[in-house]
Design a protein around this nucleic acid. Structure first.
Length: 857
RNA sequence: GGGCGAGUGGCGAAAUGGUAGACGCACCGCACUCAAAAUGCGGCGGGGAAACCCGUGAGAGUUCGAAUCUCUCCUCGCCCACCA
């Protein structure tokens, strides 16, 4: 055996062996329980970053652990391969998106293999490959058939110089095109949507079926869906036009003193008068010109104009002015609100800014309810008090009034109870090339005609030019666009929009169950066998969209009868970011790469000489703080990188990259290596302990071994506590190192156990050491050790003595000590006697085998 | 404004009602070495000679006993946000 631990030699060796023997292929033995371990698949940018390494290391530990525990494990990898960067590469460098993507995938696959990740590469999926996107298209047609895909006019970002549609990411913070620098405009286009709103209630309700998800993610999804219950109330203008509003506070209806319509509201042109027309028009134009950035600006100064018309409050016939203001959004509710300034802060601010009526106040404060001056802010609290100024609601509490008012509205036929969701339908059209083509044909006679199944996939043409200007490359390619209608044969056009890449990733986890099927999207028995995913691991940044879309897809596909479960991901782990030391010039706001700084202890900018700020931040190119996984692998090997990342912080917390700690992990693996080396090189190989009498030292070591088994198992199984699991490995290592018992079978047992427990974390070194210990089969197919209950019991236990809750001493007691004995033994100690003499013993609290607390007065 | 979470040594962190700081990093001392590195051994919250005292963001409470449970407040992070 080599004296030195040399990862550069053993890692490639074992990686090749595993590949050749198919060690990581999915087992089909159906008599074993299944486990589906999944990491969120990456976009193939060409380079693995530390976030990937962290994500995949976590999942790999779980997959390997489950395999050793007798599960058949599905642990696949794939590529979320459509998307903008490939198209940019085509424009900038003339490489075709397909070729560029393919190269990147090849490069990243090699990097992944160097990490020793136990993927079944036979099930690799690539979303940009026709044998995958064929089924993406097929699924789209299922949506279309269910009436869940439809077209609607919607705004896009339009670059007036390049005459092209821009993705949101191509519009910079100032609202300008990344390429031409032109101010981006909004244009209306007919685009495809998926009706996710039909599933809003289910998506909300079923969050309760996901106890294995972080509360945070469930809360974020619930928030995003944004259910509110209230009422729809119809107001009439003096001219007789109806304006429905949605309110969550119908109980405050008697307090409405004006109405506000969104500038985009279709009724606005009908409300203006000769005197207000120009002002309202000007306001509408100004609002339309406002970019997203201005709209989300924090300044929050209320703006608006009077429309010129009045409405009648249907419950009290009060005549109230109708205003137009952009704090009311066309996209939520009905695009119109009733304003109750006394009980809504936004309405209060608006009323204050424009001198509108604030009263009546319809529930406390009590002071002088009729004077607006007594109100300095809206009174929204509804905890106490009863209503007034509210006709039939007078005297009711707010909760009662909320009930009663709905009945009242329905009796009078002016409103109904209504539920509203913040969630909007999903705009999936992209006017881009490198995405999945939407498989429909637009026929002048038949309208929207789905591409027949036997003509799928609609493949992306290869002979395309990329200029970054004009219409999407697909729309510019006449030979591709012009096609006969499959239904009537007339000359028709293909849909040239491609799908949002979130579609590709909304079902890939289903495909892994039957990845190579070329006749079906997947066999029902396979998808129902492997799914749902038992453990999904990925970044918190996907907490809303990707996970919500995937849940939506799963439910729709279920309702098409293609599978039989409600939720795709049983347990979810969202790992924290990987951060590293970042240097920033506080005066110029420039980030400085560490290798440009001469003295790191007192970092100053090399160009300005300013003292730099030093802090941890997420690794990113623009901050020059990235640590390249490749260089870490070359230096320390994959096992050290994995160990460091898993040990440094619990998986869901942010992790601070620290070279010294990486070094520390390398040292730990070296210690394990030397332990085995020392054992093997002395020649004697006693058999692993089975039974027989043991010395005190042997008993202690054996106990340490079995405690490690127990703790490591619980840490992995019960809460992804890989950091404490590794700490337990270190303890066992220390115990073996301290025990001078090389000839004992207990030592052999301990050493062997250490290597097995290490295997999920550091698979290469564990495999090598396992072989050195004389095994011919892989450590990864060995059976995970079980803690022996007898071995865990110590001969004696340490009992802590407390007096009035303060620690005053301790003593050793036999481990089978009874409650009564424990109390008596404790009383007899010097420590206890000293305090017992000072007062009267009131009570003794005995925690068996742990502690005795004397309460003394 | 709403939601979620966090605050413990010089640092990353353990401990989820029972010995606060496991494990590791950094640091200090010793051994080995001509020397350094590597490695091994030992120390390492603060105060104190010691007995002891203090100590988990602040304050109160519950309890025999609180980092842990409850309440109030402070600070930080993330997500959502004129959502009616």
């Amino acid at each position: 055996m080599e004296e030195r631990y040399n990862p550069q030699a053993i890692e490639p060796k074992w990686q090749n062996t595993w590949l050749e023997t198919g060690a990581d292929r999915t087992s089909d033995e159906s008599d074993r329980p299944k486990f589906f371990a999944l990491s969120m698949f990456p976009y193939p940018s060409g380079n693995l970053h530390m976030g990937h390494v962290r994500n995949y290391s976590i999942t790999d530990v779980i997959a390997r652990f489950k395999r050793m525990n007798g599960f058949r494990v599905l642990h696949p990898m794939g590529w979320d391969a459509f998307g903008l960067p490939a198209e940019n590469a085509a424009i900038d460098r003339g490489i075709s998106p397909a070729v560029w993507t393919k190269q990147n995938i090849a490069q990243m696959r090699t990097q992944l293999q160097q990490l020793g990740l136990s993927y079944d590469w036979d099930r690799e999926v690539t979303t940009c490959s026709p044998d995958y996107y064929r089924w993406t298209q097929w699924l789209f047609l299922q949506f279309l058939d269910s009436g869940l895909a439809y077209q609607k006019e919607s705004a896009v970002n339009w670059d007036p110089i390049d005459q092209t549609v821009l993705a949101n990411e191509q519009v910079d913070a100032e609202g300008k095109s990344w390429r031409s620098g032109a101010v981006v405009e909004k244009r209306m286009l007919r685009q495809w949507f998926l009706k996710i709103t039909d599933y809003a209630e289910q998506l909300l309700q079923d969050l309760d079926k996901l106890p294995g998800w972080p509360d945070k993610v469930r809360a974020m999804q619930a928030n995003w869906i944004g259910k509110s219950t209230g009422a729809r109330v119809v107001f009439q203008t003096e001219a007789g036009a109806e304006i429905p509003v949605f309110t969550t506070r119908p109980d405050t209806l008697w307090g409405a003193t004006f109405m506000v319509l969104s500038p985009e509201h279709p009724l606005v042109p009908d409300l203006v008068t000769d005197t207000t027309k120009d002002k309202v028009e000007a306001y509408k134009t100004a609002a339309a010109a406002k970019s997203e950035i201005d709209r989300t600006d924090d300044s929050r100064e209320k703006t608006g104009v009077f429309s010129g018309s009045y409405a009648i409050n249907p419950v009290n016939d009060r005549k109230i002015p109708i205003w137009v203001a952009d704090y009311v959004l066309m996209g939520y509710g009905t695009g119109a609100i009733m304003a109750v300034p006394a009980h809504d802060q936004r309405d209060f601010d608006f009323a204050t800014a424009f001198g509108l009526d604030i009263i009546p106040v319809v529930f406390p404060p009590d002071a002088d309810p009729e004077t607006a001056e007594t109100l300095t802010e809206a009174y929204a609290d509804n905890a106490a008090g009863v209503l007034r100024n509210s006709g039939p609601l007078d005297g009711l509490t707010v909760p009662d009034a909320k009930q009663r008012v709905i009945e009242h509205l329905e009796e009078k036929q002016i409103g109904t109870a209504q539920v509203n969701y913040r969630l909007r339908d999903w705009l999936i059209s992209r006017q881009r090339y490198w995405g999945c083509p939407i498989p429909v044909i637009l026929c002048p006679d038949c309208g929207i005609v789905p591409v027949p199944d036997d003509q799928l996939p609609v493949e992306l043409p290869a002979d395309v030019e990329f200029t970054g200007r004009g219409a999407s490359p697909l729309a510019q390619l006449d030979s591709w666009v012009h096609v006969d209608c499959p239904s009537c044969g007339t000359a028709a056009r293909r849909e040239t929009d491609t799908m949002d890449t979130f579609i590709d990733s909304s079902w890939y986890f289903l495909r892994y169950s039957d990845a190579t099927n070329d006749g079906k999207v997947f066999e029902p028995n396979k998808v129902n066998d492997w799914l749902p995913v038992d453990q999904y691991v990925g970044g918190i940044e996907h907490a809303i969209l990707h996970l919500l879309y995937s849940r939506f897809f799963t439910k729709v596909v279920r309702d098409r009868g293609l599978l039989n479960f409600d939720e795709p991901f049983k347990r979810l782990l969202t790992q924290g970011m990987v951060q590293s030391l970042t240097y920033k010039d506080p005066k110029t706001n420039e980030y400085i790469p560490a290798d440009k700084i001469e003295v790191l202890e007192k970092p100053v900018s090399p160009s300005t000489g300013n003292k730099l700020e030093v802090f941890f931040e997420k690794m990113s190119k623009s901050k020059y703080n990235g640590v390249d996984p490749q260089s870490v692998l070359q230096h320390y090997g994959a096992d050290t990188a994995r160990m460091f990342i898993l040990f440094k912080a619990p998986p869901e917390k942010d992790l601070e990259w620290d070279d010294a700690d990486v070094e520390g992990q390398f040292r730990f693996l070296n210690r394990v290596w030397r332990l085995v080396e020392g054992f093997v090189s002395q020649g004697a190989r006693p058999e692993v302990y089975e039974s027989g009498d043991l010395s005190k030292a042997e008993k202690d070591l054996r106990r340490a071994t079995h405690i490690a088994i127990k703790e490591v198992t619980e840490d992995i199984e019960e809460g992804y506590q890989f950091n404490t699991a590794i700490a337990e490995l270190m303890k066992l290592n220390n115990a073996l190192n301290d025990a001078k018992l090389l000839d004992s079978p207990v030592y052999a047992e301990g050493l062997q156990t250490l290597v097995q427990l290490l295997a999920p974390f550091a698979p290469h070194i564990a495999e090598e050491l396992w072989a050195e210990l004389g095994h011919t089969e892989s450590v990864h197919t060995s059976t995970w050790p079980t803690a022996n209950a007898n071995a865990l019991v110590a001969d004696s236990v340490t009992i802590v003595i407390q007096v009035n809750g303060k620690r005053r001493g301790e003593f050793e007691a036999p481990s089978d000590v009874s409650r009564e004995q424990q109390e008596e033994l404790a009383k007899a100690t010097d420590a206890a006697q000293k305090y017992l003499a000072e007062g009267t013993l009131r009570k003794a609290i005995v925690v068996p085998k742990k502690l005795v607390n004397f309460v003394i007065k």
